[in-house]
Design a binder for these strands. Structure first.
Length: 586
RNA sequence: CGGGGAGUAGCGCAGCUUGGCAGCGCGUCUGCUUUGGGAGCAGAAGGUCGCUGGUUCAAAUCCAGUCUCCCCGACCA
C-alpha cells in the first residue's frame, strides 16, 4: 500500500489547475491510450512525435519515474546524468554513427563540429568510465540515469507510445567476469519485475533480438495489450516466451518417408505462386519450397522456407551476424542473379558464391519442389545432399499459429504487447571499440564485460492506460495515479457543503494525501465526468443532498459507493475515515 | 521511402463537384437563471480557408508547385 506524499504546497484546486479536458476526441488519435491522454489533458502535441506534458501528465510521468528510481537504488545502481548532446567522434569510434544513420538527430556547432542528440548512451558512458575504472577492484559497477532520448523515428505514432523525444531510464553495468554480469543481469531483472508489478502492469518477459545495441542475450519486458504493436509467443505450460522475431518452435518432421525419386524438371508455364505450382503438380503447397535472395553486408545469400511459411528477416540477420539483409526485389536483378523471374527461382544450380540457408522445418523434406532458375520450369523430387550440398539449416521462418513450444511441446500462445523495457548482456562490444579496459589480478588488461538496461518511462503511461480504462476514461493504478482522491463539492451556494469541503481538503492534505479539489462553478455531471475521465480512483462527494442525511459519499472508480457519517463528528474523525477508504482503494 | 487520407475559429466538422457576403456544433467571454452524471435563455469575441504562384471581374472552391499532419508497411524504449 502506498500513499502519495505531498511534494510541495501547490494548490490542487481545479478552479485554478491547468487541466484542459476535451469532450470530443481529437481526430489524429487512433489508439485508446493516445485518445485518453489528449482528452484527459495529460499531453498536447507540438509536432510529429514531440509532446508537451501538462501538469497532470507530468505528475503521472513523475510518479512512474519515482518508482523506477526507487527500485534502481534498491538494486544498488547509482544515479548519474549524462549529456544529451554528444560528439560524433565517440559514435564514429563504435561505428554506430553509420549504424543508427538517419535515426539520429544530428546537429553541428558554429565550428561545424558534428554532434547528435543522444538516442542512447553506451558510447558516452563507456567514454566516461574508461579513464576511471582501471582495476578489477573497481568492478562491478552499475550506473543509471533518467533522461530524455532522441530518435528520429521513421514513423512516430500513438502519441508518446512511439515519440521522437522520450524519457528513458537507462542503466549500464561493468564487470570483470561473465558470472558477475549474470548476477547483475538477474538483479536488474528482479528490479524490473518489482517496478512493473508496482505500476500494476500485466507483463511478461520474453527473449528478444539485440538489434542495434548488439550483445549476446537480451530480454524484453512486454505489457500485454491488444492494441500493442509487438507480437510475442508464450508457452502455455512451461516458461518459454519470446518476441516472435526470434521465436523458436518445435521442428516437425514432414518427410514423406519415401526414398529419393528421380530429379525431374517440369513445365510450370506462367505460374508465379506456390499455390499455382502445387495445384498444377498435385502436391501440398508446403513442399513447394520458396527461395528468396537477400543482399547482406557480406554479399548475396539464398533463404529457403516451406511453401506455406514466411521468412523472419530478423532471424536471418541474427544468424549471419550481418547488420542488414534486404530482399532482392527487382525483377531485373533477380534475373541477373538466378537467370529466372521470381516465380521460378530456386537453390539448385545457383552461383557457388551464394550460400544457401534453409529453415529447420524443411530439413526433413524429401522429394520436394523448387524453382528451376529457368522461366516456366520447376524441379521436383529434389533432395538434400544429393541435389544440394552445403545447405545451412537454421531457425529461419516466422512462427505460425499452432506451432509448438521448442522446450516442452505445448502449444504456443500469441499475444500483442507493448515493449516497456529491455535488458541486454552486451559483452565487450563497446569496451572493445572504445578501449575500456581494467587490470585483472594477474596484471593483464581486459575489456570490461558490459550490460545495459532500459525502461521507457514515458511509454509506460500509455501502457498503464491501455490496461486500465473503460468507456468513461482512465482508471489509474495506485502507484501511478496523479491524485489519490478528488473532493467534489456540489451546491455552490450551500455554505455547509463549501465549508466542509474546504476543511476536509486541508485536513487530508495535512495527512499527506494528494487530493484534488473540484471547486469549479459548474454542473455536477461535468465534475463527475471529468473526475472519471482523468482516472482519479476515489471521488469524495460533498453536497446538500447528502448533508441533509448527515453523510457524504465516497465513490470508487470501479463504481462502488460508500456513505460516511459526518453528523456530530469532528473533522479529524471524518478525515481519518476517508483516509481508510482511500487506502483501501490502493 | 512505398501505398492511402487530411489541412477551413481553441476542438470536432460542413462548404469545394457547379467560383459570387466563410458557416454549424462544442468550447471561450458578458449578464440573468440554474447545481447529484457533460444546464437554460440572451448577447459577444474569435478566420490572411496550410503556404506560394497561376487562371478569373471575382478563388476556401479551378490549375501548378510546396509544406505539414494522420493511417498501413520496413525500424525501435
Amino acid at each position: 500500500m502506498h500513499y502519495y506524499k505531498t511534494k510541495g504546497d501547490s494548490s490542487m484546486r481545479l478552479s485554478n489547475y491547468f487541466l484542459p479536458t476535451l469532450k470530443e476526441t481529437p481526430a489524429d488519435a487512433e489508439m485508446e491510450s493516445h485518445k485518453l491522454m489528449l482528452k484527459a489533458g495529460l499531453i498536447r502535441k507540438v509536432t510529429a512525435g514531440i509532446y508537451d506534458y501538462l501538469p497532470l501528465g507530468f505528475k503521472v510521468l513523475n510518479s512512474i519515474e519515482e518508482v523506477v528510481r526507487e527500485e534502481m537504488n534498491r538494486a544498488g545502481a547509482q544515479e548519474i546524468k549524462l549529456p544529451i548532446i554528444q560528439p560524433a567522434t565517440l559514435w564514429k569510434e563504435t561505428g554506430r554513427w553509420e549504424d543508427f544513420g538517419p535515426e539520429m538527430f544530428k546537429l553541428a556547432d558554429r565550428k561545424d563540429r558534428e554532434f547528435a542528440l543522444g538516442p542512447t548512451h553506451e558510447e558516452i558512458i563507456t567514454d566516461m568510465v574508461r579513464n576511471e575504472l582501471n582495476s578489477y577492484k573497481d568492478l562491478p559497477l552499475v550506473l543509471f540515469q533518467i533522461n530524455d532520448k532522441y530518435r528520429d523515428e521513421i514513423r512516430p505514432r500513438h502519441g508518446v507510445m512511439r515519440s521522437r523525444e522520450f524519457l528513458m531510464k537507462d542503466a549500464y553495468s561493468f564487470h570483470a567476469t561473465q558470472e558477475s554480469l549474470d548476477e547483475t543481469y538477474e538483479r536488474m531483472y528482479d528490479a524490473y519485475a518489482r517496478i512493473f508489478d508496482r505500476l500494476g502492469l500485466n507483463w511478461v518477459a520474453v527473449e528478444a533480438p539485440t538489434g542495434l545495441m548488439g550483445g549476446s542475450y537480451s530480454q524484453e519486458f512486454m505489457a500485454l495489450a491488444d492494441e500493442g504493436g509487438e507480437e510475442i509467443v508464450v508457452c502455455e505450460s512451461c516458461d518459454y516466451s519470446s518476441n516472435v522475431e526470434i521465436a523458436k518452435y518445435e521442428v516437425s518432421s514432414k518427410g514423406d518417408g519415401k526414398g529419393p525419386s528421380k530429379l525431374k524438371k517440369v513445365e510450370t508455364p506462367g505460374m508465379e505462386t506456390v499455390e499455382e505450382v502445387a495445384e498444377h503438380l498435385g502436391i501440398s503447397s508446403q513442399k513447394v519450397v520458396k527461395t528468396f535472395i537477400y543482399r547482406t553486408d557480406d554479399g548475396l545469400v539464398a533463404a529457403l522456407v516451406g511453401g506455406d511459411d514466411d521468412i523472419e528477416e530478423m532471424k536471418l540477420i541474427n544468424h549471419l551476424g550481418t547488420k542488414k539483409a534486404e530482399m532482392v526485389s527487382s525483377q531485373q536483378e533477380i534475373k541477373e542473379i538466378t537467370g529466372a523471374n521470381f516465380g521460378s527461382i530456386g537453390p539448385v544450380g545457383l552461383d557457388d558464391d551464394i550460400p544457401v540457408y534453409a529453415d529447420l522445418d524443411v530439413k526433413s523434406f524429401t522429394n520436394f519442389t523448387v524453382g528451376a532458375n529457368e522461366d516456366g520450369y520447376h524441379l521436383t523430387n529434389v533432395n538434400w545432399e544429393r541435389d544440394l550440398e552445403d545447405v545451412n539449416f537454421i531457425n529461419l521462418r516466422k512462427v505460425n499459429r499452432g506451432d509448438s513450444c521448442p522446450e516442452c511441446g505445448s502449444e504456443l500462445e500469441f499475444h500483442k504487447s507493448i515493449e516497456v523495457g529491455q535488458i541486454f548482456q552486451l559483452g565487450t562490444k563497446y569496451s572493445d571499440s572504445l578501449g575500456g579496459k581494467y587490470q585483472d589480478e594477474t596484471g593483464n588488461l581486459n575489456p570490461y564485460i558490459m550490460g545495459c538496461y532500459g525502461i521507457g518511462i514515458s511509454r509506460l503511461i500509455p501502457a498503464v492506460i491501455q490496461q486500465n480504462y473503460d468507456s468513461r476514461g482512465i482508471n489509474w493504478t495506485s502507484e501511478v495515479t496523479p491524485f489519490s482522491a478528488e473532493l467534489i463539492v456540489l451546491g455552490s451556494e450551500d455554505e455547509k457543503s463549501f465549508q466542509l469541503g474546504e476543511k476536509l481538503y486541508e485536513e487530508l492534505k495535512k495527512r499527506n494525501y494528494e487530493i484534488l479539489l473540484d471547486d469549479r462553478e459548474t454542473s455536477p455531471g461535468f465534475k463527475f465526468n471529468d473526475a472519471d475521465l482523468i482516472g482519479i480512483p476515489v471521488k469524495i462527494i460533498i453536497g446538500p443532498r447528502g448533508l441533509e442525511n448527515g453523510v457524504l459519499e465516497v465513490e470508487f472508480r470501479s463504481g462502488n459507493k460508500e456513505e460516511i457519517e459526518v453528523e456530530n463528528r469532528e473533522i479529524e474523525q471524518i478525515a481519518e475515515k476517508l483516509g481508510e477508504g482511500i487506502s483501501a482503494s490502493a
